[in-house]
Amino acid sequence: MFRWAKGYAYTGKRLFEKTVTIQYPQQKPKIPEGWRGRHYFYPDRCTACDACARVCPTEVITVVSHRDPETKKKILDDYTIEFERCILCGYCEEACPVDAIKMGDVYELASYAREQEFMTQEKMLPPGYSTDVVVHGQGEAYRGGDYRTKPEKKVNH
């Protein structure tokens, strides 16, 4: 008959407990290690092996490279991520053999326009890196906007 009173006791007790809200802009949440935020890209480490582009489920990574005629090694020309379609699964990070792409700790991902969501090497520079390392090779990767200019991708099968 009076079990509802227990509910009042429960809520009444909570009235004097500490609140659990994180006051967001002033108080930032703790980001655990290995968290999957926006990417950091290390152009100096990248060997243009294309592993990240192949493993990406949403096919948002574009790697443009050319082969050095002498050493037969691949040289990175450009690297972009269509971040608006990225689902932050972290597969690229796992696939990369040289740790050139890392999932970072940036979680404030909102922007005012789709174009701003397009990640070029400059935007993905890890903290402490200057823009000197950005590679501008012969080719230029798809830079968002008009999908008709997007290069055809190899389908996985």
Partner: peptide
């Protein structure tokens, strides 16, 4: 928070 720590995401764990 616990799952975030082990998987890297809060909802879409993969």
């Amino acid at each position: 928070d616990l799952l975030e720590e082990i998987s890297g995401a809060r909802l879409t764990y993969s």
